[in-house]
Amino acid sequence: MMEAIIDLLNAIVLLLNFVVIPALSYGSQLALGALGITMVYGILRFANFAHGDTMAFGTMITILVTWWLQSKGIGLGPLPTALLALPVGILFTILILLITDKLVYQHYRRQKTPPITLLIVSLGVMFMMNGIVRFVIGPNDQRFIDGERFIIHARSFKAMTGLDEGFSLKVSQGLTIVIAIIMVLALFWFLQKTRTGKSMRAYSDNEELALLSGVNPDRVVLITWIIVAILATVAGTLYGLDKSFKPFTYLQLLLPMFAAAIVGGVGNPVGAILGGYVIAFSEVVVTYAYKKVFVYLLPASLEPSSLMQLLSTDYKFAVSFIILVLVLLIKPTGLMKGKVI
């Protein structure tokens, strides 16, 4: 009996360690990214293909400042130095997004260009940002994490509990989850409680009515870009800390982020967060090899011979895509009702 309980505990720890925690932190990163996409979608009314590269840009500035701080010997002790560099990254990202808006998007907004043309315009912005990022930091992998690596060590967890399976929580994962919660709470407070937030929601809901009520459109757009810059830089930096920074990966994040935004209901912030976790959990659940879990749960005679993996990890894009299509076919507005911010 005791044996069975320990096996069960081992299996739970295994799932926690390799499925729940990674999916939670990846989902938080996706949710933050999807929030940025959904804000642009809801208020500026187009699918922003440059969002992945905006994230890469913000992260790049953060990395450069981190390196500079590291060379000066300034750090945060157990926490990664990147946190200290983050505000600078955000500042630069706000700057570049506002410049882009002034030079590029503003013209089309006044012309009332259809969203699909704006999408193509955002492709141009994507190219330029991608070029800048690759020019400054190069196309290769960059690691910039320092400080403690783990909050909970697998080895000390084993020693503490006496289980065969270790449970570890990386600093980057813990940080991601905590920061994502803080950011989301702050954003919701802003959108629900402040005057500016309310005017943004009104603008998203019905542009003409909001304008008639005296909402200043330029101010709404300005605040939107600032929020998008903050979300993008934080999401990008957290992703970079958790995995690693490579410009091409950020371009590839576009698909899961778009899927998260649409699955949740485009223009709906709650939906974007829900969508982020739905996509992340399905990706991890479908591509995890369950062999060891079954070894613990099943009697020895029934032990599986294969890896018990539904899909190889390279198919994770397929997962986000299939969920996207399914939701669009079954519930075209997304899980939460879209188009309301």
């Binding site: 699909i116 778009f258 390279d314 198919y315 895509f321």
Partner: peptide
């Protein structure tokens, strides 16, 4: 039959899937 911008995102996904298939 999806909205024009949804269709665009869908095609992005399809191409990634095709490449993943060819790679694996």
């Amino acid at each position: 039959g999806l909205r024009a911008d949804y269709l665009t995102i869908a095609t992005l996904g399809i191409s990634e899937i095709i490449i993943a298939l060819l790679k694996n």
